[in-house]
Design a binder for these strands. Structure first.
Length: 884
RNA sequence: GCGCACUUAGCUCAGCGGGAGAGCACCUCCUUGACGCGGAGGGAGCCAGAGGUUCGAUCCCUCUAGUGCGCACCA
């Protein structure tokens, strides 16, 4: 493609595919280990293998890619390690759904066959999300891609499990767990979502045993659990029931005698102050049962149906049982009343089924000893949360943590490495598979059928992916990682667990910073979800607008830690920006033919005010961007670039450079070419981490050094900041804006060139005189006459006055003198208000005494300026009125 | 119930101790040799309410109201 053929509208499609393939083919994403340099490492939060890329992924991975590309250009050996998560429940459910279409269940296939199916499925679809990440431009090192169930990660899981077992931190026991009857497995506490629901509170009379007519009324939200009751409890201080403690009641419909016990757990102010106790189906009742040595009667089974323990209700669904039971209670005269009650009901976070707490034998991780150091390291600053407020959320969770239920009644996952000897009863946790009992030698052994919680393997991700437990070169060099980038919804699930596992096994933090971002919401501010159907597919946005646009829109729309709303207007605005970058580059390319920067010695060039200004502005924007990125304010950095490119480079610098680019002065032309190239090429490098594709495409067409912009060095400043140039140029901008404004208010069309008479103080006049061609060009003048402020004022003219400068546009025929008078009057009023405000401040003794000297000084200067401007305006008014 | 956020222009959101900002939308003008996915100009806000700290508060503190989100075993 020659520069002449560059289309006027940027088309991302071909460009993105081409450069991504180029980067892959050239191994651009794979770092070289250099012991002399400081590595920069991120391990990806592994997406679910079965998943498809959603907006949350798009944001999370764009942030990571910006950080990664930035540090890579900065010269750090940079590793972004990608991979996927086996997502036990989700993946298994997916494959089971496939089987169900053929009328089969996993039990029909058997464990081994079923697992083969899942692997098959994984091989077929597991790569999809990785491909989708590539569409986004993610510069992950795919040669190091990992999967939580690959050999290395599985090895790490085994090592950690057995090691924790040996340290006494993993145990097996019968406790109340959160059981999902739909997923048919136990889940951990954080996988339960509590939803506020209006339910009922049933008041049921339990007749006293051995007494005529006496009864105790209990209140329950789950009548079906009555069948499993083994006691009634009251508070020991509750006077109402004092005499009943120690007596017995008869369980309605069942006839079981059970004790009335006293326990401080009972809140006398709730319900009737008497609580039915079901040790097999409620965690608190379970504990009370332990304290009082109560019987456990299981009445609800793993399928959510009533068990044999439920007697004549056996086999009924739990809710059907509830209905029938309540009827029976009513018939028997046991039901006292029913009240509405708002309470929180636990639902499975995966399938939204109501969780059934039930007694079950499961594996647990003892949390207290692991949580302690994890709290410590964060409190001591070993790990920093950004934004800082998430530290508190993290700490509160760990401080109140309960043991972690890690066994899952699934087939897809890391199988628990524990064997039971059927002969001697020995329980063996082993790093390697075993075929005989080490105690009695029996080969009659059986491995635990359950698998581990997926998060167990995810918790090891930062080091298992780098080769642990082997002491690999990668692990040595890239660990600990630099930052973890993730959404705020996953702090407990993942962040906390990685931290305590790393401390327990690496004796070091897994990452130094945790950067938390918000969620991507829909335009109405709702969470995007499948059930609402309000999700927007990132790939659709990429198709329509390009990956750079999606990335930049997400980045500039996000503030660390806060949610952002997705709306198409912002996508379009960002697309327009991409197009702006494209077109200003197009202009540059059209004017750089035959230009070779290597043939130019900058010290031979004569830089104009505009040149010095834009170079200085570049430097300060460059420094600002670096500062913002190091604070993780990527949105701020993106916005700074947006404004610099559009407002300063395009709207001011390039417009002025055209004067020389299209002029006859060869030297001046070369200088303009040089500066335009210099600033554009460097700005593209600043922009590259945010918009990798378009910047690469343009950069390749511009004169440049190196193979790819992604490996080009991060730009340095262009010399020192030139405050004089910035100040002088600001004056030009003010004058130009003033002229444009005055013309617009007088409805003078741009085609109507006007004479501009500028009167100023000697120094200022000199600057303006030298830059008069800027005013000619930007303010549609045909002639600029610059004189001293003492000179005679033109009569019939539009005017404006700014600090020490008076500008007149003598447009006799176009000027409506009444309008002009009104304008001046309005300005006078405004200026009088300013003077008053300034005076008031400066008359305030407290202000003079306590405000910083420079603030006071600034205010004094302002006052002088205002007074001067006011005087001139009044003079102008007098003359206008005199002329009438 | 406890905790954490948020409330700024019509909309989406920045700013956060010294005179209110952006994008979109709106109004006026412009076929200027990169771009109409553009250019120039403009209107628009008691910065939720009430107190307090301060010379000075949109910004810090307290309370109130509304919204959102976490956490929580009240049967």
């Amino acid at each position: 493609m020659t520069t002449k053929d560059i289309p006027t509208v940027y088309d991302p499609h071909a460009v993105e595919e081409k450069w991504y393939q180029y980067w892959l083919d050239n191994g651009c994403f794979t770092p070289e280990i250099d012991p002399e340099k400081q590595p920069y490492t991120i391990v990806i939060p592994p997406p679910n293998v079965t998943g498809a890329l959603h907006m949350g992924h798009a944001l999370d991975n764009t942030i990571q890619d910006v950080l990664i590309r930035y540090h890579r250009m900065k010269g750090n050996p940079t590793l972004w390690l990608p991979g996927t998560d086996h997502a036990g429940i989700a993946t298994q459910a997916r494959v089971e759904a496939e089987l169900a279409k053929e009328g089969l269940s996993r039990w029909d296939l058997g464990r081994e066959k079923f697992l083969e199916k899942v692997w098959e499925w994984k091989h077929q679809y597991g790569g999809r999300i990785i491909t989708q990440l590539q569409r986004l431009g993610a510069s992950c090192d795919f040669t190091r891609e990992r999967f939580t169930m690959d050999e290395g990660c599985s090895h790490a899981v085994r090592e950690v499990f057995v090691s924790l077992y040996e340290r006494g931190l993993i145990y097996r026991g019968s406790y109340i767990v959160n059981w999902c009857p739909q997923c048919h497995t136990a889940i951990s506490d954080i996988e339960v979502e509590h939803e506020d629901t209006t339910g009922h509170l049933w008041y049921v009379r339990y007749p006293l045993a051995d007494e005529e007519n006496g009864y105790v009324t209990v209140a329950t939200t789950r009548p079906e659990t009555i069948l499993g009751d083994t006691a009634v409890a009251v508070n020991p201080h509750d006077e109402r029931y004092k005499d009943l403690v120690g007596k017995e009641v008869i369980l309605p419909l069942v006839g079981r005698r059970m004790p009335i016990i006293a326990d401080y757990y009972v809140d006398p102010t709730f319900g009737t102050g008497a609580v039915k106790i079901t040790p097999s189906h409620d965690p608190n009742d379970f504990e009370i049962g332990q304290r009082h040595d109560l019987k456990q009667v299981t009445v609800i089974g793993l399928d959510g149906r009533m068990t044999e323990g439920a007697g004549k209700f056996a086999g009924l669904d739990r809710y059907e049982c509830r209905r029938q039971l309540v009827n029976k209670l009513q018939e028997g005269g046991y039901l006292e009343k029913i009240e509405d009650l708002d309470h929180a009901v636990g639902h499975c976070s995966r399938c939204n089924t109501v969780i059934e707490p039930l007694l079950s034998k499961q594996w647990f991780v003892k949390m207290k000893p692991l949580a302690e150091p994890a709290l410590q390291v964060v409190k001591e600053g070993g790990i920093r949360f950004v934004p800082e407020r998430f530290t508190k959320i993290y700490c509160q969770w760990l401080e109140n943590i309960r043991d972690w239920c890690i066994s899952r009644q699934l087939w897809w996952g890391h199988r628990i490495p524990v064997w039971y000897c059927k002969d001697c009863g020995k329980e063996i946790a082993s790093r390697d598979d075993i075929s005989s009992c080490p105690k009695c030698g029996s080969s009659h052994i059986e491995q635990d059928p359950d698998v581990l919680d997926t998060w167990f393997s995810s918790a090891l991700w930062p080091f298992s992916t780098l080769g642990w437990p082997e002491e690999t070169a990668d692990l040595k060099y890239f660990y600990p990682t630099s930052v973890l980038v993730t959404g705020r919804d996953i702090i407990f699930f993942w962040v906390a667990r990685m931290i305590f596992m790393a401390l327990a096994f690496m004796d070091d933090v897994p990452f130094k910073d945790v950067f938390i971002h918000g969620l991507v919401l829909d335009a109405e501010g709702r969470k995007m979800s499948k059930s609402l159907g309000n999700g927007i597919d990132p790939l659709e946005v990429i198709e329509k607008y390009g990956a750079d646009t999606l990335r930049f829109m997400l980045i500039t729309g996000s503030v660390p830690g806060y949610d952002l709303r997705f709306n198409w207007e912002r996508v379009e605005a960002t697309r327009n920006f991409a197009n702006k970058v494209w077109n200003v580059s197009r202009l540059a390319l059209l004017n750089l033919e035959g230009f070779d920067p290597s043939q130019v010695n900058p010290s031979d060039l004569e830089f104009t005010l505009a040149d010095r200004w834009i170079r200085s502005r570049f430097s300060s924007v460059r420094n600002r961007v670096v500062e913002l990125i190091s604070d993780y304010d990527l949105g701020g950095a993106g916005t700074a670039l947006y404004e610099f490119i559009w407002d300063e480079f395009c709207d001011w610098y390039v417009e002025l450079a055209k004067l020389r680019l299209y002029g006859d002065d060869e030297k001046a032309r070369q200088t303009a070419q040089y500066v335009m190239w210099e600033v554009l090429e460097r700005t593209l490098r600043l922009l590259h981490p945010f918009m990798p594709f378009i910047t690469e495409e343009i950069w390749q067409h511009l004169p440049h050094e190196g193979e790819s912009i992604m490996n080009a060095p991060y730009p340095k400043e262009i010399g020192e900041r030139d405050e004089k140039a910035e100040k002088e140029f600001a004056l030009i901008q003010e004058v130009v804006r003033g002229i444009r404004n005055a013309r617009a208010e007088m409805d003078v069309p741009p085609t109507r060139r006007a004479r501009v008479i500028i009167q100023a103080k000697p120094e200022t006049a000199a600057v303006l005189k030298q830059s008069s061609m800027y005013i000619v060009s930007l303010a549609w003048a045909n002639e600029v006459v610059t004189g001293l402020i003492t000179a005679e004022k033109p009569p019939q003219a539009v005017s404006f006055i700014t600090n020490g400068v008076e500008v007149y546009l003598p447009l006799a025929d176009l000027v409506d003198m009444d309008k002009e008078t009104a304008r001046v009057k309005k300005e006078i009023a405004a200026m009088e208000a300013e003077v008053k405000r300034s005076e008031r401040m400066l008359a305030n003794k407290g202000f003079l005494a306590k405000a910083p000297a420079e603030v006071v000084q600034k205010e004094r200067e302002k006052e002088v300026g205002y007074r001067d401007k006011l005087a001139r305006l009044k003079e102008r008014l007098t003359r206008l009125q005199g002329n009438h």
